[in-house]
Structures are given as structure tokens and as C-alpha cells.
Design a protein around this nucleic acid. Structure first.
Length: 243
DNA sequence: AATCATGTCAACCGCAGTGCG
DNA sequence: CCGCACTGCGGTTGACATGAT
């Protein structure tokens, strides 16, 4: 697969990598490690730009990368993580066993997004697409995951905002009014009790727990400080209250 | 068998963030 | 504080594979 090979104006090779190029890059990084991607291609004897080398290494050549089909468990985890993190594939990848962000992104765009849509879930908001529909929230057909069938409630988008929407509103309001510092944000984001306080009703709480991963799932609720700071910055910017 | 639609995946591009002089 | 260089990330593209008609 991949793309045809060509050379750009600077004489840099583009497109598909050959086995020989792979070997050169692996050999160089094994010997010298990853330092200064810009200079690596020169030193490794490759006519590639540093960016291309970095991408090739991180997405393909790096040891321990898991390739091939995603298991139902992995798919479910991606959906849950996406409900919390959105299209932040690098962050999602950090919580997945040896999967690259590119791999996850590809699988989401080509497969999971469609599966959710087919099941009546908006892949971006993780909300039911049509409130009048009976929604079957089976996330992966091939998996053994839970299936909850039932009519959706009117309250979803109109009268009562979803739990995650309420949570975001609260965070944004807190930041803009400078009520919250980062630790508070962290607490709100990670404390399932806090989150559940903002559920519209019991059904929704159940659904949000399933989709948003607010169960005891300690595996992905571990969010590093850098992540939290970034979230804070984004929210602060969005609410026009940048320090 | 041919054609079309869809899925998969590697790779590129552009932008934002960060560090440094 | 500013500008530049570099890195990392997300969106998108393009080519091949596979399944359906």
C-alpha cells in the first residue's frame, strides 16, 4: 500500500519506504538513539526529511508496535476514550497497548465511526442521533459488549444537557470566573461521583458511564498533569479567560 | 469476469506548541 | 518580547485489497 515514490524540489524522497531505507533507519536509531530528527536522515544516509523519518519510526518501525486487527475490547476502549478525549488520538494512544495514534485514528475513521452511526450514536458527541429512535447501544457488533436497548428520552438535548456537556459547562464557567485551579479541574474530571452529579437522569447516567468510561475504569482515568494543563488551557481559551 | 463500493493503512501536509537565542 | 527552528499532532489523501453486484 502507501504512495508512489517521488522526489520533491529539494531532492527529498517522498512516498513509500523501501526495506533498505527501513533497515538504515532502524540501524541508525538502534545505535544512536532518537535525537534531532532533522539530522538523522543525513547521518543515516537517507534522502528523507526528518519528519518523514520520525513518522516512519513511530508508526511502523518502533519496537513493540501492535499491528493488525483491533480486538472488541480495544474497540470498546477506543470508543470510551474518544467520548472523554475527543479526536485527540495521541492522548488516546497513550492509553492503548502499543497502538499508534495513526492506527487508532485510521480505525476510528474507517470503522468505528460508521459502527456508532449505524447504531444511532453520533460519533462526535456520543449522543443518540435521533431522540425518537429506539437506540441499540451495542458498540461493536463483533464484540461481547453490553447491549442496552430502549427508547431514548426527550431530555437528552433539549431540557437537560448531558452529563458530559454539563461537566464541560461547569469547568468552563469555573475557569472563566477563576474559581477553579488545575487541581480542582483534575478532581472534577476524575471523580466519578462529581461526574454523576451532573447526569440528567438515571438512564443517562448509565449510558454516560458506559460510553464516557466513568465506571471504575482506572485504566484510562489516569491522566497526567501535562494532559490536565492542556485541557485547562483549551477550556480557558474557549471561555476567553486566558490568564 | 468486470465494475463499483467500501475498507484498510501508510504517508503527507499544515498548524500549533515549545524552546532557545 | 520577538522571531526562528524544531517537534508533535490531527486531518487528509492516495493506493491497494476485498467484497458486493
Amino acid at each position: 500500500m502507501g504512495r508512489k515514490t517521488w522526489f520533491d524540489d529539494d531532492g527529498m524522497k517522498k512516498g513509500e519506504w523501501t526495506a533498505e531505507e527501513d533497515e538504515k533507519l532502524i540501524a541508525y536509531i538502534n545505535e544512536h538513539g532518537m535525537c534531532d530528527w532533522r539530522s538523522i536522515p543525513k547521518r543515516a544516509g537517507l534522502r528523507r526529511c526528518g519528519k518523514s523519518c520520525r513518522l516512519r519510526w513511530l508508526n511502523y518501525l518502533r519496537p513493540g508496535i501492535k499491528r493488525g486487527k483491533f480486538t472488541p475490547q480495544e474497540e470498546e476502549k477506543i470508543i470510551k476514550l474518544h467520548a472523554v478525549l475527543g479526536n485527540r488520538w495521541a492522548s488516546i494512544a497513550k492509553h492503548m497497548e502499543n497502538r499508534t495514534d495513526n492506527d487508532i485514528k485510521n480505525h476510528w475513521n474507517s470503522c468505528l465511526k460508521k459502527k456508532l452511526s449505524r447504531n444511532g450514536i453520533d460519533p462526535m458527541t456520543h449522543e443518540p442521533i435521533n431522540n425518537n429512535l429506539t437506540v441499540t447501544t451495542t458498540y461493536v457488533e463483533c464484540g461481547s459488549s453490553s447491549t442496552t436497548t430502549g427508547p431514548t428520552t426527550e431530555s437528552h438535548c433539549s431540557s437537560a444537557p448531558s452529563g458530559s456537556a454539563c461537566l464541560l459547562n461547569k469547568l468552563a464557567a469555573g475557569i472563566s470566573s477563576r474559581q477553579y485551579d488545575l487541581n480542582m479541574i483534575k478532581n472534577i474530571l476524575f471523580d466519578p461521583r462529581t461526574t454523576s452529579n451532573y447526569q440528567g437522569d438515571k438512564e443517562e447516567a448509565k449510558r454516560d458511564q458506559k460510553i464516557g468510561g466513568c465506571e471504575e475504569e482506572g485504566d484510562f482515568l489516569i491522566w497526567d498533569d501535562e494532559e490536565v494543563r492542556r485541557q485547562g488551557r483549551l477550556l480557558a481559551r474557549a471561555s476567553g479567560a486566558v490568564e
